[in-house]
Design a protein around this nucleic acid. Structure first.
Lengths: 234, 234
DNA sequence: CGGTACGTTGAGTCATATCAACCATAGTGG
DNA sequence: CCACTATGGTTGATATGACTCAACGTACCG
């Protein structure tokens, strides 16, 4: 891990992104600042792999990271994306298991590594922080549960429409109404658990229905309500 | 909620089922014992509904409870089952949201209601307990993530085979090799997200392949390895 | 300039959903 | 006590969504 010139300060970072770390005391914050290690990674780099033992968590300052699993036959399944202010890999550290997911940079990132011991000691000694950590994990669990229902019940078409809406609300649009997050067709397919070809076909159907506009990886949302309707069709 | 004659003691219950509550101090345990409320519910009764506000969690002493969501068009999706020693509904309490699932008794149950305040205060004041709570939630999250991959990538056939194996390992078999948990075809369908008819057809295929034996709701596992193989077929 | 990754389109196939009919059982109310 | 109704289970016929395989275009990179 190469240390780079720019190192975010935990105080600023946690405030700006409203992360759980803002519940730390001054002393605790200093400790984290001292013990953390900052890294700059470019698109394509892998942070950790499924099955590996990780002895700390990563706090994202900038960029986007995809968290995914590899199923039988090697097909990838994207579980979620992490962005500024998010913490990843805490699950393995806290439950003392090997990683159940892999993490790959999909947009150049800056993040800090916080040793597991530090995290555990914060949880055990700071009730407020601990409570906030729990809320965070519970929120993630709630999302996972919803996703199970969606994926089990909706058609591929519905799931794709839904994921576009979801990506909009999570990462926003740039000035021309184009989704800020840029994914390959295959990545889109791996979110909703389908074949690349199906994504391609459905995207162009959406284009014909004037729901979106396509320009390579640029996806412009034309009719969000229409997408929402599509995602809820039986 | 009718109080019934038999009221489990938290000390015994947490030790017998190895639950997170065994990390409480004597005083804390007394408090929980004092503040909890014990209930006896029969099959079919609903504990709480999606969308309702719950101000406490339930600790299961006996029985089986299904936790499910209702999708669009009213189709149910079973998220998981809770049994002796499990805690449910903690997510809504801890993250201060309304319930994202419903809970229904599927095998006569005895359980205790623990007020949210009590739970939160235990988490804030007892670092060990808090850490164990976190481990528990992380484990549930890990399972949810795996399930997302399975459901997105496996065929209905594979999922059904898998769920049978899973039900065996979670609830065990009785003396004649029959799954202890008894579910309707529709419930099985709602676990794996398919149609009742498909479950029926696949179960009889499994019977023809000598993987299982059927007798109404009694499912006898004949060839667990075969089921595992079936569940992993691309 | 050739290689590799990504994107696109077409054709054929298969697993699964849907619709419909039917039987068995148990519970309900007149 | 019987008709009535609801619920669960089963089977068959049919429709179709989505996957797979295959071929080909394009862009970028060393």
């Amino acid at each position: 891990m190469k240390q780079n010139s720019y190192i975010p300060d935990c105080d600023d970072c946690s405030l700006e992104y409203n992360s759980v770390f803002k519940y730390l005391t001054k002393d605790e914050m200093d400790r984290v600042n001292y013990e953390k290690k900052c890294c700059h990674y470019k698109r394509g780099k892998i942070l950790y792999n499924e099955g590996s033992r990780i002895n700390g968590c990563y706090c994202i300052n900038k960029g986007i990271i995809k968290i995914y699993k590899t199923g039988i036959d090697g097909k990838g399944q994207i579980i979620r994306f992490a962005k500024s202010g998010d913490i990843i890999a805490y699950r393995s550290v806290l439950s003392n298991e090997t990683a159940c997911t892999s993490a790959k940079i999909i947009e150049d990132s800056v993040f800090c590594f916080i040793p597991g011991n530090t995290l555990v000691s914060l949880i055990k000694n700071n009730g407020e922080f601990s409570m906030e950590m729990i809320k965070l994990i519970c929120r993630e669990l709630g999302e996972a549960n919803s996703y199970i229902t969606d994926i089990a019940q909706k058609t591929v078409r519905g799931r794709l429409a839904e994921i576009l809406v979801h990506l909009k609300s999570e990462f926003g649009l740039n000035d021309n109404g184009v989704l800020k997050i840029s994914l390959t067709r295959k990545e889109l397919a791996n979110i909703i658990g389908t074949a690349t070809e199906s994504v391609i076909r459905l995207l162009s159907e959406f284009k014909n229905d004037s729901l979106i506009e396509l320009n390579a990886r640029q996806i412009k949302i034309l009719d969000e309500q229409g997408l929402i309707r599509t995602s809820n069709l039986f």
